[in-house]
Amino acid sequence: MKNQKELQQIVDIFKLLFEIATGTRTTQARKLENQSELEKIYNELIDFDEKLQVFMKANNLYVPSVAHENLTQLIFVLNKQQEVVNFNQEVLLLLHYNSEELINIQFEQLIALEFREVWRQIVKKRKPQLWTPNYAKLTFITTEGKLFPTYCSITNMAPNYEIIVTSIITEKESTAKLHEQWFELTNKDIIQKNFSIKLYDYIMERLNQQLPSLQTIARELGTEEHLLKTGFKKYYKTSVYQLYQDERLKRAEVLIQQTAIPLKEIAYLCGFKSYLNFYKSFKKKYKYAPSDLLRKT
């Protein structure tokens, strides 16, 4: 229960921060008992807001409403069978469904084909009692067959462990801008994008080892080398081995900063054959040596 209570307090803190930043607070928040660290943070935010309101009033200032008016939030409520049981109005407006079409539909039917496996893997790994949200990039498909890409948070709700899928995006991305960018994919495009996603996952699962040749990878994935190469460049704006190198170095940087693992071992964990090779690659990318980073002791 303690973890559940703390999670709710964190949600309340972020909600209060959002209301302060956008000027959308309509009622005065009540202070908490001020016993835990989270309660102290919440109370400090209330004090800060009160001082800010006094200053704004004294100087005839107001918070512009543009920021929060330009936000759009998609909300889906799913049952244990992953059927849609509720949703907000924006879902209807942006995906062009009507209420009757959405109720009891399998959620993955709203997701573009190439992203359904992403959703399945999330559901497969999640546990009903797990409160920590997952985050994933999902692309929804409208009734006209057009694509709506967005980042989503997936979590559970007590007491029935319903699945909540939410996404907050700016209006610039969600309405006029995305209406211009929506596009219909041909079968060839879908196949190429599917292989690019598979290749990306293949790379991310092997950051701790040497990557095979592109010809070998293409054979394993059941496609041709040149198609894999051009498709990956098209959708990820970089080459296969450049992404592989960049992601290994990103992982190494995190390990250096967040752990006390020896640098030579980190080089090995990130798939480099030698520390010298790792050192040269790291310094070339970040312009400083691995040993220059502040480390946990």
Results as ranks from 00 to 15, higher is better:
29 A>G: 14
180 E>C: 10
132 T>H: 10
63 V>T: 14
138 L>M: 06
138 L>E: 04
155 T>F: 05
91 V>S: 09
24 T>R: 09
262 P>S: 06
116 R>N: 08
62 Y>T: 06
133 P>D: 15
87 F>T: 12
269 L>G: 14
161 Y>K: 10
198 K>R: 06
142 T>H: 04
130 L>S: 10
280 K>S: 11
156 N>V: 10
155 T>I: 06
42 Y>T: 09
270 C>T: 04
260 A>P: 12
37 E>G: 06
27 T>R: 10
87 F>G: 00
259 T>G: 08
154 I>N: 12
277 N>K: 05
229 K>E: 01
293 L>F: 09
142 T>E: 00
96 H>P: 01
167 S>L: 06
286 Y>V: 03
184 E>L: 05
280 K>T: 10
40 K>H: 02
18 F>W: 15
296 K>P: 13
132 T>P: 11
92 L>W: 14
201 D>N: 04
99 S>P: 10
131 W>T: 00
232 F>K: 04
86 N>Q: 06
169 I>G: 06
2 K>Q: 00
255 L>R: 12
102 L>Q: 03
124 K>F: 04
177 K>N: 07
219 R>G: 15
175 T>N: 05
35 Q>K: 15
248 R>Y: 13
294 L>Q: 10
244 Y>H: 02
43 N>C: 14
11 V>E: 10
204 M>E: 14
213 S>H: 14
161 Y>Q: 07
92 L>D: 01
234 K>L: 01
75 I>T: 00
278 F>Q: 06
77 V>N: 09
227 L>Y: 04
195 F>V: 06
128 P>W: 03
157 M>Q: 11
179 H>Q: 04
25 R>D: 02
147 L>R: 08
294 L>S: 03
139 T>N: 14
27 T>P: 00
195 F>P: 07
94 L>V: 03
156 N>R: 14
117 E>V: 12
225 E>V: 15
250 K>E: 03
172 K>D: 03
230 T>F: 02
79 N>S: 12
270 C>W: 09
42 Y>E: 03
122 I>G: 03
171 E>P: 13
271 G>S: 15
211 L>Y: 12
151 Y>T: 05
217 I>H: 03
103 I>V: 08
105 I>K: 02
169 I>Q: 05
149 P>T: 08
6 E>C: 00
184 E>F: 01
43 N>F: 02
159 P>M: 01
259 T>L: 14
211 L>S: 05
202 Y>A: 13
243 L>W: 07
209 Q>I: 08
79 N>L: 11
224 E>P: 01
106 Q>H: 07
14 F>T: 00
205 E>Q: 12
192 Q>Y: 05
281 S>D: 03
199 L>P: 01
120 R>T: 10
262 P>E: 01
113 L>C: 11
76 F>A: 05
46 I>F: 10
253 E>K: 12
140 F>R: 02
240 V>L: 12
191 I>L: 06
94 L>N: 01
82 Q>R: 13
49 D>P: 13
99 S>R: 05
246 D>S: 07
81 Q>H: 10
61 L>F: 09
101 E>Q: 09
263 L>D: 07
17 L>M: 06
283 K>F: 01
220 E>P: 02
211 L>H: 04
56 M>V: 04
150 T>G: 10
133 P>R: 04
202 Y>I: 04
250 K>D: 02
28 Q>V: 13
71 L>E: 11
151 Y>C: 11
